[in-house]
């Protein structure tokens, strides 16, 4: 098995119906994009789960570092002024 070429990994995104975003559903191995799409259709849309598929080579996806989660995302926590409720307006105005 050592000199056998690896079949690359693809991440699969399905759009349940028009109007919605494609959503990550899982991954699979396939030799090329066309085969990955076919396999994704066979594996992930057998029960009408979607009407459109995207496949992306897993190695082409960059992910943020979980160890840096705090430094990446915590700074948003104390910026309460980014939310509507931070601002005081007269009750009579109702929804704004």
């Amino acid at each position: 098995m050592s000199d056998e070429k690896m079949i690359p990994l693809w991440e699969v995104f399905i759009r349940p119906r028009n109007g919605l975003n494609h959503k990550h559903v899982g991954s699979l191995h396939a030799a090329d994009g066309e085969l990955a799409l076919q396999a994704a259709r066979d594996v992930y849309t057998r029960r009408e789960e979607g009407n459109s598929i995207w496949v992306v080579r897993a190695e082409d996806i960059l992910a943020s570092d979980p160890d840096k989660s705090a430094e990446n995302f915590d700074p948003a926590a104390d910026k309460i002024y980014r939310h509507p409720s931070f601002y005081d307006i007269p009750d009579e105005v109702g929804h704004m």
């Binding site: 109007g19 975003n21 002024y81 939310h83 931070f86 601002y87 005081d88 704004m96």
Partner: peptide
């Protein structure tokens, strides 16, 4: 376009409120 607008609208409320305040 619709999906972009949903994201935008969520953020706009604060804009108007800070101005009115």
């Amino acid at each position: 376009y619709a999906r972009a607008m949903i994201r935008v609208c969520k953020e706009e409320s604060f804009h108007q409120r800070q101005g009115y305040e």
